[in-house]
Amino acid sequence: MIENVFKRKLLARERQIGLWLAMADAYAASIAGQAGFDWLVIDAEHGPNDLRSILAQLQSIESTPSMPVVRPPQGEGWMIKQLLDIGAQTLLIPMVENAEQARQLVAACRYPPRGRRGMGAGIARASRFNTIPDYVDAADDQICLLVQIESRQGLDNLEAIAAIEGVDGLFIGPADLAADMGHTGNMHHSAVQAAVESAIGRIQACGKPAGILTFDVDLNRRYLELGATFVAVGADVPIFTAALGDLLAPYSASATRPPSRGY
């Protein structure tokens, strides 16, 4: 059985620094993996990914030190089934707002009788095409389910969501949370930051790991100090855009570098 190193470190509360991948490109994913990030999010919620581009990135990242995390557009059972079958072991599900939703996500990630994942491992990459004899028996323990808390409703139900067995970590989405709180584009607002810091403490009080993504070094250091353990610190698209702008700037008076609104 292939060990999910990300999950092992997550449950041990080891600090893991991540990066968002939205280019939907296996070559770019390989470059990011070789850079040494602990985890890389293959983003299909806002990045133009489909099942085959996700598969290509999983294959590309496999040869690097990084561990892949896949974010589907939403937590639909059929999406989860396909992602697990192509070999994703860690899923990050957006917009989780209540305990029943979390319970259904856990069930979608587990084989019967513990859940309702479809029995297709015999032809799946996850079982290395049926060359892992005990895959179905051992798979559940290596699947890692992360849920995103990014609305006021999600915050209201945080403890109930965290109490669901099989939810391995809770990830705060500050950009959507700020928008839901009436501060679109301003995750630095004092009310948003108070909610984020409170959520990190509440998640830990529930005995679960806390995670977050921002492009702000000072904020990320603050969240790590507060006990967040899986923290994403950037994304490939804005990094690439900024680097190209910096390269061109000395040669073009009209070159502009678009500001990052952050996450």
Rank of each mutant, 00 (worst) to 15 (best):
Y135E: 02
S127Q: 04
D137S: 14
D140Q: 07
G166T: 14
D137T: 12
N130A: 14
G166M: 11
V167K: 12
E165F: 05
I132D: 08
F129R: 06
A126Q: 02
A126S: 11
A126D: 00
D134H: 10
E159V: 09
G154Q: 04
V167Y: 10
R152A: 13
A163S: 15
A138C: 06
G166N: 10
V147P: 04
D140H: 11
Q142D: 14
D140C: 10
G154P: 05
E165A: 15
L145M: 05
Q153W: 00
V147S: 09
R125I: 01
V167M: 12
V136K: 05
L158D: 11
N157F: 07
F129H: 14
Q148E: 07
A160G: 05
I143A: 05
T131K: 05
S151W: 09
A138P: 00
Q153E: 15
Q153K: 15
I149Y: 05
Q142E: 15
V136N: 00
N130G: 04
D141E: 14
A139F: 03
E159D: 15
S151F: 11
R125Y: 04
A139V: 06
Q153S: 12
A162T: 10
A163R: 14
D156S: 14
D168G: 09
A162Q: 09
E159R: 14
A126F: 03
L155C: 13
A139Y: 02
E165C: 01
I164V: 15
Y135V: 02
Y135M: 01
I132T: 08
D137Q: 15
I149N: 07
D134S: 14
P133Y: 04
S127F: 06
V147E: 02
E159W: 07
S127M: 05
L158E: 11
P133S: 13
F129Q: 03
I164Y: 09
D141H: 08
A126E: 01
A163N: 06
G154V: 05
G154T: 07
I161C: 10
E150Y: 11
D168F: 07
P133H: 05
L146I: 15
P133R: 12
E150L: 06
N157K: 07
P133N: 04
D137N: 11
V136W: 01
I149S: 13
T131G: 01
I149G: 11
D134C: 01
I161D: 10
F129K: 01
G166E: 08
A162S: 09
A163Q: 13
I164K: 02
